[in-house]
Simulated assay, not measured.
Amino acid sequence: MGGRKRRKLVPVRQKPKLPKTFECPRCGKVSMTIKVEKGVGRLSCGNCGLSAEIEVPPVFGEVDVYGKFIDLYAEGRITLQEGVKGEDEGEGE
């Protein structure tokens, strides 16, 4: 006269999602957007106007492009797009 055997409920773990916006190395705001198209990663900051294009393998995602950008920016080997105000012109902080 035992009751039904109940199944344990297994807690569902949600997968962590990758971010869509990233922190800008120049101004420190989380306003860096990245688009990857045909082996070229385009990065732009909505706050300070920093933008760049990086050639990357087609399998790279936004996070990979951001990592490569940060490495190149820290080394000083990144080429910035024309029309962007430079760091010595003032950032308006």
Rank of each mutant, 00 (worst) to 15 (best):
G41I: 11
D64G: 15
V65H: 02
L43C: 05
F22W: 15
C24D: 01
E62W: 04
K35F: 08
V36P: 15
V10T: 15
I54Y: 12
V65A: 10
G76Q: 05
I54Q: 10
R7Q: 12
K5H: 08
E62Y: 04
R4H: 14
E91W: 00
K29L: 03
S44T: 10
K29P: 00
N47V: 01
R7F: 12
Q14N: 00
P25V: 07
K38T: 06
V65I: 12
V63T: 10
R26Y: 07
V59R: 11
G86M: 10
P11Q: 11
T21A: 09
C45W: 01
T21I: 06
R7G: 05
G67T: 10
Q14A: 01
F22R: 05
V84E: 12
P11S: 11
A74K: 12
Q14R: 01
E93V: 02
L43G: 05
K38V: 05
I54C: 06
E62M: 11
E53W: 01
G92K: 09
P16C: 00
C24Q: 00
R13F: 00
G49V: 06
L80I: 14
E93P: 02
G46S: 05
A74V: 04
G61M: 12
R6L: 15
G61T: 13
K5V: 14
E87D: 11
L72W: 09
M1T: 11
G76C: 07
P16G: 01
F60S: 14
V12I: 11
R6C: 05
E91Y: 02
F60L: 13
K5N: 09
M1Q: 08
K8C: 12
V10G: 02
P25R: 04
E62L: 11
L72D: 15
I34C: 15
G83K: 06
L50P: 07
V36Q: 13
T21C: 01
G28N: 09
G92E: 15
L50S: 05
I54A: 08
G90N: 06
E75W: 10
G61F: 13
V10K: 13
F69I: 05
G3F: 08
A52H: 03
G3N: 07
S44I: 06
L72E: 15
G28C: 05
I70T: 08
K85D: 10
V59T: 12
